[in-house]
């Protein structure tokens, strides 16, 4: 439990205006941090969107070369149901795993960065309104 001061030294007065200057300095740092977050998230969004174009092209080409759609079309054939296990394995094996993983990852990064950008812009706008 805190106790009363045991003694008082010569008084130290806080310069007038210093508190306001310090609060402004903190606010300035907060604003800079918010702007950095916006810049970084927008940059990541743009980069992931740019990377998504060749990635999705590569994915489409991979699917075309992999006979995935051919195996998939077999599922509609009633006679093929007898070999549904083998067909299922073939379908999975024919998936272009590497390009598919990369494309999904890029979509994830794009969505995450867009969410961060929107939140940062929204927070920044709210803070500007309160200022």
């Amino acid at each position: 439990m805190n106790q009363k001061p045991l003694f008082s030294l010569t008084e130290v007065s806080t310069p007038s205006g210093l508190l306001e200057r310090v609060l402004l300095a903190i606010e300035h740092k907060q604003r800079m941090a918010r702007l950095w977050r916006i810049r970084i998230s927008v940059a990541i969004s743009a980069a992931s969107l740019a990377a998504l174009i060749p990635a999705s092209t590569a994915l489409a080409n991979s699917f075309a070369l992999s006979h995935f759609t051919s195996y998939l079309s077999l599922l509609g054939d009633s006679a093929a149901l007898t070999y549904w296990k083998e067909i299922s394995v073939s379908i999975l094996e024919s998936l272009p795993a590497a390009t598919l993983t990369m494309t999904i990852a890029l979509v994830g990064v794009l969505l995450w960065s867009m969410r961060m950008a929107i939140r940062s812009i929204s927070t920044n706008t709210t803070q500007l309104q309160h200022a």
Partner: peptide, 22 residues
């Protein structure tokens, strides 16, 4: 709540200033 930091800063400003000045 951004104002909470302002309140905390204001509450301890004089004591931290005094301690630092010593």
């Amino acid at each position: 709540d951004q104002s909470a930091l302002v309140t905390l800063t204001t509450r301890y400003f004089d004591t931290i200033y005094r301690y630092t000045y010593r």
